[in-house]
Design a protein around this nucleic acid. Structure first.
Lengths: 106, 106
DNA sequence: TTTATTGTTCTACAATCATAGAACATTAAA
DNA sequence: TTTAATGTTCTATGATTGTAGAACAATAAA
């Protein structure tokens, strides 16, 4: 794989983003990413198989929630804060706060 | 049907709420409800069959997003603003704003 | 009491989804 | 060049989902 598809900011679709975030595993990943600048795929904490993780990361990326950067054999992830804030102002922060209040552990 | 189930405030679950809102038809219904105090089921604007509408309304109600009140043969819906704001502060407003900016028409 | 209104439930179905094992691709290290 | 590390893609499977027609339930109106 040479290039990874990332939808442009203007194409971010709210229902698609909501669906991507509605899975507990994916929501947890996004919360982890939100706490750091970048995270290696292998460093994401989740109790699923590698192939399942890969599927979730693809869902998040194609929804425009995350960005994946290739570096050697590793892939680094981050939340597309700027794009999400531009397209859906205040939404990401409210979501993270809601997740925090809802489940402080994760 | 005598009584309708509504999950208590403390049981509202973020992924479940996000999933309920991730369907375009349901998101549209919530936006309509947010613009008024209450809405009769039959007054909800959507291009789906009655049985499909009923299914969506059940999904929203069981996720804790809406409340349904029985009155004669009609059912009146409203968004559970207080409960949602208490459980997920700022989330509903951010969502509605995001939906508005994303799709001003609906 | 019969009829109309409102909306749900039942049933069915095609589509999507989360899951994971196995094989594979790519790059780095030995 | 071989081996190890990282993660994706392929394939399969059981579960959930959105859809709608048909039958039904409950209330109101004639």
């Amino acid at each position: 794989m040479r290039e990874l598809y990332h939808p442009p900011r203007e194409k971010l679709d709210l229902p698609t983003v909501l669906h991507a975030l509605s899975d507990p595993t994916r929501l947890s990943i996004v919360r982890q990413l939100a706490q750091t600048e970048e995270l290696c795929v292998g460093s994401c904490d989740a109790t699923v198989a590698k192939s399942t993780m890969s599927h979730h990361l693809k869902t998040l990326r194609e929804a425009g929630v995350t960005r994946t950067r290739l570096e050697g054999t590793q892939r680094f992830l981050c939340v597309r804060r700027d794009d999400l804030d531009a397209r859906f102002p205040g939404f990401l922060d409210a979501l993270l706060k809601a997740a925090e209040q809802s489940d402080p552990a994760n």
